[in-house]
């Protein structure tokens, strides 16, 4: 018989006192270790692959600069004589032109769409519109290229607007590039705007601000880092996009800043040259890697600059 059964007083806290101190020693958990290891491996692998790509590009790029003076590479015009047309400045101009046109179209439209979806649209409208906008991101870039080549240039630019543009030109390539990155900028910016706490909007509205003031002066500054990340992502896609600019932008090295003329971009150059028969180790072959490296550096610098800008201006909540 348990003697405590009849004793008045506070009941014991548990089911009963253990005979010996409870065992609290660590237990082996092999499953946990395995999972942790495989997760670390997947994280490590993506870093490893990135470094692998850099290494693979770096090798041939460095041997290119053994074969060709760096002055020939960063040059406005191809220097004859060495058997390789090494000038890269025209390619940078082509990339710059198409990207600027793309951003000029996509940033206002993408941000506008994001602000509408996040701040103005009813929940029902938003439920339909956001996936529809995101659907645009799924269109293959070759379709966009076709669209630029056979609709934007002949119908819109030459027909409706009556512009005298070349068959391939930077207007068409840049504009369609912009259309391509609108969903990226819109969707990511919308995520950033929606993540701003409702309390900030209420605070602003309760002071007598209207929706536009609330959006532009409170929500947007608070979401700036996310919005900037969205724009940089779109920009990186525009700089790296190949198909549209190859099809619709032209294959001519061109130093003019007139977008109605054809311009070859860095990516178009790589795509076109890679199809040619260039023996491994030749200067032409190695130049592909040099341009690829330059593309990588350009993207990297853009990222670094935008991070610095965001650090300076963002309003962390």
């Amino acid at each position: 018989m348990a003697p405590s059964a009849t004793v008045a007083g506070p009941p014991p806290s548990g089911a009963g006192l253990p005979a010996s101190p409870p065992d609290l020693s660590p237990r082996p958990r092999p499953g946990e270790t395995l999972i942790k290891l495989s997760l670390a491996l997947s994280a490590g692998l993506s870093v490893l692959i990135t470094f692998g790509i850099i290494a693979a590009v770096l090798g041939p790029a460095l041997s290119f600069f053994d074969q060709v003076p760096i002055g020939d590479f960063f040059s406005l015009h191809d220097q004859g004589g060495r058997g390789v047309r090494a000038a890269v400045i025209p390619l940078l101009i082509g990339t710059f032109l198409t990207t600027v046109i793309a951003l000029a179209l996509a940033v206002p439209l993408g941000l506008g769409a994001a602000m509408y979806l996040s701040e103005y649209a009813s929940p029902r409208a938003r439920k339909w519109l956001k996936p529809t906008v995101e659907l645009l991101a799924g269109v293959p870039s070759v379709v966009y290229g076709f669209f630029a080549l056979f609709f934007i240039t002949p119908v819109v630019l030459q027909g409706w607007l009556g512009l005298e543009v070349n068959f391939t030109n930077s207007w068409a390539a840049g504009l369609v590039l912009g259309v391509m990155i609108i969903p990226t900028i819109a969707s990511r910016s919308e995520d950033a705007l929606s993540a701003v706490p409702q309390a900030l909007r209420q605070g602003s509205l309760a002071m007598g601000a209207n929706r536009m003031q609330t959006t532009l002066r409170v929500v947007l500054p608070a979401a700036l880092s996310g919005v900037a990340a969205a724009i940089v992502l779109g920009l990186s896609r525009a700089v790296g996009e190949t198909m549209i600019v190859t099809m619709a932008g032209g294959a001519v090295k061109n130093n003019s800043l007139d977008p109605s003329e054809p311009h070859m971009t860095m990516t178009a150059f790589i795509a076109i040259t890679a199809q040619g028969e260039n023996p491994v180790g030749s200067a032409d072959y190695n130049m592909l890697f040099a341009v690829g490296l330059l593309l990588f550096v350009v993207t990297f610098v853009i990222n670094a600059i935008s991070i610095a800008i965001v650090r300076r201006f963002r309003q962390a909540y």
């Binding site: 900030l200 601000a209 500054p221």
Partner: peptide
Amino acid sequence: VFQKPNPFPKSIYDNIAYGPRVT
């Protein structure tokens, strides 16, 4: 004035000046 303090992520000065500015 709300349950949870909801200052804007701006400077103290700009928080106060916000209302007069927007209205």
